[in-house]
Amino acid sequence: MPSLSPRFASADSVVTALRAAGCVFAEDEARLILTSARTPDELAAMVDLRVAGHPLELVVGWAEFRGLRITVAPGVFVPRRRTEFLVEQALAQVPDASVVVDLCCGSGAVGAALAAALGPVELHAADIDPAAVDCARRNTADVGAHVHTGDLFEALPDGLRGRVDILAANVPYVPTGEVALLPSEARDHEPLVALDGGTDGLDVLRRVASEAPRWLAPGGCLLVETSERQADAAVDAFTRSGLTTRLAVSEELYAQVVLGTRT
């Protein structure tokens, strides 16, 4: 922990500043900031950013995801805890997967978590946003991932067609008209391309579902996160693409994951 700055002469003063800004878990956040800051000036800057409404993960530069410390950067989508349920479902569905694709990868958290659980795999990650691709490269370098820039499947090498065991696609699914209603931490600090899913929120999901069968290996599985309200329409999109489809729900994490298997 760095020496405390004149403005924050004690750990309690950091907690007080965060609580005054409306941080519900001020004590926990203060601990993370205090252990992440390397100098008194950095500590003060981190507190100021958090007080101004920047997401805590972007303030400290990392997010925890399935026990991993995932590097995040300004302008990159912060992985949500509920998305751990998608990873769990993928591992249960294809426990012996050897080829994994993390589509719409953002920070690469899903791919990194799958590789950590599966052991040596051929991992590919792709995103349309260059900032996300740079972040994903850092988070998957240790597992030798191939990280690509481009629009969905256009980013992937043709040699993956028909070979993918797990295709995890954490697509944007907020309806365009509801983006403005998101919490400011997401609305003001995360890229619109990672949030806006079109008129009903399912534009990107439908594109992924329609193309996925050409990329999946026999027995391979596509997994996409969606909302409770959109679940029926998402299941229908998977079924129309010819996948054997089911919906998995976690009440604890408030997570809905659609799974589609190529038979």
Score class of each variant (00 low, 15 high):
G111P: 04
A112C: 04
A113T: 08
A113H: 10
A115H: 12
A116I: 06
A117I: 12
L118R: 03
L118V: 00
G119Q: 04
P120S: 12
P120A: 14
E122F: 07
L123C: 01
H124I: 07
A125V: 09
A126E: 02
A126S: 07
P130V: 02
P130H: 09
A132L: 13
V133S: 04
D134R: 15
C135Q: 12
A136L: 03
R137P: 10
R138M: 11
A141R: 12
D142G: 13
V143W: 09
V143P: 09
V143M: 06
G144Q: 06
G144L: 05
G144I: 08
H146G: 14
V147K: 00
T149Q: 15
T149P: 12
G150V: 02
G150S: 01
G150T: 00
G150C: 00
F153P: 06
F153D: 03
E154R: 15
A155S: 13
L156R: 02
L156W: 04
L156T: 05
L156C: 00
P157F: 02
P157Q: 07
P157V: 05
P157E: 05
G159R: 15
G159L: 14
G159S: 15
R161G: 08
G162S: 04
G162Q: 09
V164C: 02
V164W: 02
D165Q: 10
L167M: 06
L167E: 05
A168N: 13
A168W: 12
A169M: 10
A169N: 13
N170H: 14
N170A: 14
N170T: 13
P172E: 03
P172I: 09
Y173R: 09
Y173A: 07
Y173W: 11
V174A: 05
P175G: 03
T176W: 04
T176I: 07
T176L: 04
G177A: 02
G177E: 00
G177Q: 04
G177R: 03
G177D: 01
G177Y: 02
E178V: 03
E178D: 15
E178K: 12
E178I: 01
L181V: 11
L181M: 15
L182G: 00
S184G: 05
E185W: 05
E185F: 06
E185T: 14
E185N: 08
A186F: 14
R187G: 04
R187I: 07
R187N: 09
D188N: 11
D188S: 10
D188T: 06
H189E: 08
H189C: 12
E190N: 02
P191N: 06
L192V: 13
L192D: 09
V193D: 13
A194Y: 08
A194N: 08
A194I: 11
A194T: 07
L195R: 06
L195N: 10
L195T: 05
D196L: 01
G198R: 13
G198T: 10
T199Q: 12
D200H: 05
D200G: 01
G201H: 07
L202E: 08
D203T: 11
D203M: 00
V204N: 09
L205F: 11
R206D: 14
R207A: 11
R207T: 03
R207S: 07
A209W: 00
A209I: 01
A209Q: 00
S210P: 01
S210G: 15
E211Y: 10
E211V: 14
E211Q: 14
E211N: 10
